[in-house]
Design a binder for these strands. Structure first.
Length: 467
RNA sequence: GGCGGGUUGGCGGAGAGGUUACGCAGCGGAUUGCAAAUCCGUGAAGACCGGUUCGAUUCCGGUACCCGCCUCCA
């Protein structure tokens, strides 16, 4: 009862609600993970960072051993197939399956590296869809047996009309959507809204044997099967981008609730809003499409990217701009300079930050509270809080730590120059040296007490030659 | 066409029916040979039109504009 109550905005009820775990000893969280065909773009990173904050908060409040976090890898997908086929046509000697495996392995490695750089903790489980084909087939068979799905021309389809609450999550009705007439009309569908659980694969595509012939699963079934296997028929929180609300999450609910009517599937649905870039949607056609790796390669540290994400509440559209990244770096450097002092003090994360996050992950308020800590010069609490927020590890990140350099000799020389200048009234030599130091990325602090030289952001020891 | 989100001071971005958000930038001051850094102080807002209220930027309705989804993209 001492910990602050967590409140979350539940997309299912469209309200902010007190979070009550099903089992406080094992809080279960599921996030729809990436399709592993290419580097994660910046938008892919937003839900990961958002849920990482939630994961850290839950671990803090309920205990690190009491949270199970699952994030899947979708490694069966037509884009992956296309990429493997392209390599095959380019002359690769491996089999299609081998090429697919290579591609997904490689992409998962990239994904881990990129998300690690953003300070996101690894989930408890990271299931791959291809390791759960059996569970998916079993679930589909069950759905057919219960009358919620049917086989037609090698496909298995979910019978949307058999689930009365279909559309409840996203506030749509089947009839309205059909009236919108944007649904794919396929001859083998009983109803235009029915969606694919299983589809046939020809020889050029990866496939698994099934009661309906060689084929592969539809997209939605994997999350239903894996969440059931790893978290059970009922779990606490299901998260993802708002663009997944329909149809993906709606279909997950339909499948899971029909297959396991004894469970309620996810209690809380958490959806993050979309990311924009300089005020526009990120898209390849606009030329503003980039990956997390692109930013890291440009020298923008992962902590800076994370900080920019945290400035905006997850439920609002977030705009990525170069200016925000610049300001974030300035702020982080300032905080790090404070946090790295006196590494002796051990402390807990600031309670006001825990409270802020408990209020539907108010990360902007958490940052405001960090400013207060910095202002109050509460070194150990600031450090513990930054670590808690994933903005720093055990120590200050390398990019922000002061480069190793002994500038005491130069400081003495500058001090002497100034003393002389005070008498001669000719400050030109002092200013010249100061300018040179600044050009080398050295911060020059001159006070009555003396001269202090600090290697700064763009420090370049080579430029100090001759001083 | 249907469903959903947004619109806050120069910029970014929160909370709260009536009291300073916070950060960056600006301005004034302390300090400095001058700066930088630091510290102190300070101006500045709530897309538009109505309604509820003693009082709304905060609640309700409408308008405008922006964005997302409805086409297996987070």
């Amino acid at each position: 009862m001492t910990e602050p109550a967590i409140r979350l905005h539940n997309s299912k009820t469209r309200r902010k609600e007190a979070f009550t775990p099903i089992d406080a000893e094992n809080i279960r969280l599921y996030l729809c993970g990436p399709t592993v065909y290419d580097r994660a773009h910046l938008g892919n990173a937003r839900p990961v960072v958002v849920i990482d904050v939630l994961y850290r908060l839950l671990r803090e409040v309920y205990g690190p051993e009491c949270v199970t976090y699952v994030r899947n890898f979708t490694d069966v997908d037509d884009k992956i197939n296309a990429s493997a086929q392209a390599r095959k046509e380019a002359g690769a000697i491996e089999t299609l399956e081998e090429l697919i495996r290579q591609r997904t392995e490689e992409t998962i490695g990239w994904y881990h590296a990129d998300m690690d750089a953003l300070g996101a903790l690894r989930p408890t489980h990271e299931p791959r869809a291809t390791d759960f084909i059996g569970a998916m087939i079993a679930m589909i068979e069950d759905l057919i047996a219960k009358g919620h799905a049917y086989e037609k021309e090698g496909h298995v389809l979910f019978r949307v009309r058999s689930y009365k609450d279909y559309g409840a999550l996203s506030g749509r009705s089947v009839d309205d959507m059909i009236a919108g007439a944007r649904v794919e009309v396929a001859p083998f569908k009983e109803d235009p809204m029915d969606f694919v659980l299983w589809k046939p694969s020809d020889a050029d595509l990866p496939g698994w044997e099934s009661p309906w012939g060689r084929g592969r699963p539809g997209w939605h079934i994997e999350c239903s099967a894996m969440s059931y296997e790893l978290l059970g028929a009922s779990f606490d929180i299901h998260a993802g981008g708002i663009d997944l609300q329909f149809p993906h999450h709606e279909n997950e609910i339909a499948q899971s609730c029909c297959a396991h009517p004894e469970g309620g599937f996810a209690n809380v649905w958490l959806h993050n809003e979309m990311l924009q870039v300089e005020g526009k949607k990120m898209s390849k056609s606009l030329g503003n499409f980039f990956t997390v790796r692109d930013l890291l390669d440009q020298g923008i540290p992962g902590e800076v990217i994370r900080f920019v994400f945290l400035q905006t509440h997850y439920g609002k559209p977030m705009d990525w701009t170069a200016e925000k990244a610049r300001q974030a770096e300035v702020t982080l450097r300032k905080w790090y300079r404070i946090a790295e002092q006196g590494l002796d003090g051990v402390s807990e994360p600031y309670i006001a930050v825990i409270s802020a996050l408990s209020d539907d992950l108010n990360t902007a308020e958490a940052i405001a509270q960090c400013h207060q800590l910095a202002h109050a010069d509460d070194i150990s609490t600031l450090r513990a809080t930054l670590q808690f927020l994933g903005l720093m590890g055990r120590s200050v990140p390398e990019w922000a730590s002061a480069p190793e350099a002994d500038l005491s000799g130069l400081a003495t020389k500058l001090a002497a120059l100034r003393t002389t200048a005070m008498e001669t009234k000719d400050f030109a030599p002092v200013d010249a040296m100061k300018t040179a130091l600044l050009a080398a990325g050295v911060e020059v602090r001159m006070s009555k007490a003396g001269v202090e030289l600090l290697p700064g952001a763009g420090f370049d020891a080579a430029k100090l030659e001759g001083l």
